[in-house]
Amino acid sequence: MLEVNNIEVVYMSVIQVLRGVSLEVGDGKIVALLGANGAGKTTTLKAISGMLKTEEGEVTVGTINFDGKRLDRYGPEAIAGMGISQAMEGRRVLEHLTVEENLLVGAYCRKDRAGVKEDLEVVFDYFPKVKHLRRRVSGYLSGGEQQMLVIGRALMARPKLMLLDEPSLGLAPLMVQDIYEIIKRINADQKMAILLVEQNARAALGIADYGYVMENGRVALGGPADKLRDNEDVREFYLGLSAVGSKKSYRDVKHYHRRKRWLA
């Protein structure tokens, strides 16, 4: 349903961030986008959601297709209307609004009032913790609750594709596990495609169908999630597991990594 074809992104007409990124998200699939800091994961998401245009970024080469439409030609509001909703990095709740108002903002573009009410209950069903806090000012919620609220808000638009940017950022391991289980459930119940940007490769590959690894503005590696989990490089660089469990000198790793980059 979503196809990113070899896009290049340039900020402020000079800073090139993406140098040819291609990826694909199929109907109802969870796709993980992994990579180190500054690899271009968030920029890829912003290129898809059109948010680049608000930050003086631009897709200069390549196309982004979503259900037969060229997304790179539309602004963020129009793209949201096509059924893509984004939960941005860093738990961006609307601090002075209540929890319920936050969720209603997510459903702003929908016309069916009854459906919105139903979905409010659906969201509360996924996140029972949030239900008790519905009249609270959202700025005072804990980090985990805010992350739930942000995912819930993205869900309220009843999108076809949800873009999640680092849902595990700054959360305790148990909370990460909770949130990932819920993401998996949402994907299974709603048949909603999810594109997941993550540093936490272990958690992301645990629920994803397919994964991509980005490096220096390029996709360095792509494949089914279980294959990626077994891939030596991914195990070594992202999961922190050494290939044979034996000691390895830092020099070898560095050299190996450098060679890998040249090849990519």
Partner: peptide
Amino acid sequence: EDLQVVQSVG
């Protein structure tokens, strides 16, 4: 509160 969030929900 947050212009980007508002744009992201359409």
